[in-house]
Design a protein around this nucleic acid. Sequence first.
RNA 1: GGUCCCUUCGUCUAUCGGUUAGGACAUAAGGUUUUCAUCCUUAAAAGAGGGGUUCGAUUCCCCUAGGGACCGCCA
Length: 463
Amino acid sequence: MKKVATRFAPSPTGPLHIGGVRTALFNWLYSKNNKGKFYLRIEDTDKERSKEEYKKQIIKSLQWIGIKHDNEEYIQSEKINEHRKVAEQLLKKDFAYKCYCSEEEINEQKNIAKKKGIPFIYNRKWRNSENLTIPNNVKPVIRFKSKISGNSVIKDLVQGEINISNSTIEDFVILRNDGSPTYQLSATVDDHLMDISHVIRGDDHKINAFKQKQIYEAMNWNIPEFAHIPLIHSNEGKKLSKRDKASTIEDYIKIGILPDALRNYLLRLGWSHKDKEIFNLDESIKYFNTTGIGKSPSKLDINRILSMNEYYIKNTNENDLYNNLEIYCEIYKDKIDNKNKEIKKSLTFLKNKAKTLEDIYINSQYLIREKIEISQEDMGLLDDVSKNILANFLKEFQKIADINKENLEKIINNLIKDNNTNFKGVGQPLRIALVGSKFGPGIYDIILSLDKKDVVKRLKAIS
RNA sequence: GGUCCCUUCGUCUAUCGGUUAGGACAUAAGGUUUUCAUCCUUAAAAGAGGGGUUCGAUUCCCCUAGGGACCGCCA
């Protein structure tokens, strides 16, 4: 059996898109599942729009989610000469020809086609150039001689058999008039050079497969398997674009999504294995296959991402979680410096109340900050009765030498009785005074995680 | 407009002709936790429509409708 090699081939013209991450993930998982290779190819032949920083960002994003590529990144622009050579060979083999149509000429044809409401397809004017005189002011492009009649079939691993009439495929350009190769040529040559066995990509590339297949055939190369996966749609049901909110991977990193959670979510978006929802890394690799990929596009659901993240936060051990939190805070919030011990210890309860790392960060502020801020609204909840309760609590609290849950419970229970109230009547003002919010960890967890002097200080600040 | 593709709860999906159409998220209602965004239980919620094939169709075929992708000397 042929060795499996897959690839992810983004162009570095923008930050990595969530759909791209999923494509990369599927490729990576497929290769791992087959003990094959996974390569990263940077398609940077669009010199205008390609940026080094995006390339770095793409690599970083893949790393973040745990995707490692084999070998060095394959840089497409470094292989331009190879691509050109293939164009020459195609020309020699009579599978391609020079087209001397000027841009104006092509544009004119397009306009006519538009007016008539018919699809534009290059009229193959130069396919047979016997009776044409070569203009000396036009630099030619090289076009591929596509099949004119008959049908082509691709057995797609996801889509099944796709059958199209060859007449719908035009004589596409493979070499521009400046001598640079186009995507159709470069991608095909590179896939061949890299010995790619399975091309897994978004189904917006489906038609390209038919063009590329013809190049493979003309060159007598092995044709890889194709798997065109349905696109991820925005809420409006359109292909996700960079304009859509939360479409880049950074959008998720910055709200504190864990890499494993996003990996798991993306895996289940458009792919399934029976009823199973949670897949750890090993299981992802073990179960991934192309037969589990659905055929219809799917929508992003932030609730699902959040709930997946919540699950992973709860099920990550404190050490790993802390490491994630520390990195997260340093980049997106404030660096945790001297309070790391307290936070690490408190993670056992902080993680039970958080959907994101950001939640943990917010809920841990009372540990980090010297002074806490109380919103106007919460301040309003502290009426005279509550303030009195707090004062009494403080009095009793200062008396106890050994602070533990038992002692605290005693104090609070007495306060409830004395003030003829319930737990909320005592707990809520306490939390507001100590944390600055109605929400947060359990009362006992809060008090136990603070220094005695901080508790005293914060309670005094209220009265 | 042409070509190709898709269509099960609001969302992600299971079902490989026979199920009370299952699960998860979200929603609602209860219940624990003497507060809370945790946890538990329950509920509501789907086969686009119409024809076939079949003893029997969500499942196979056709048509219609709706949606999408592509139609660059971008990738």
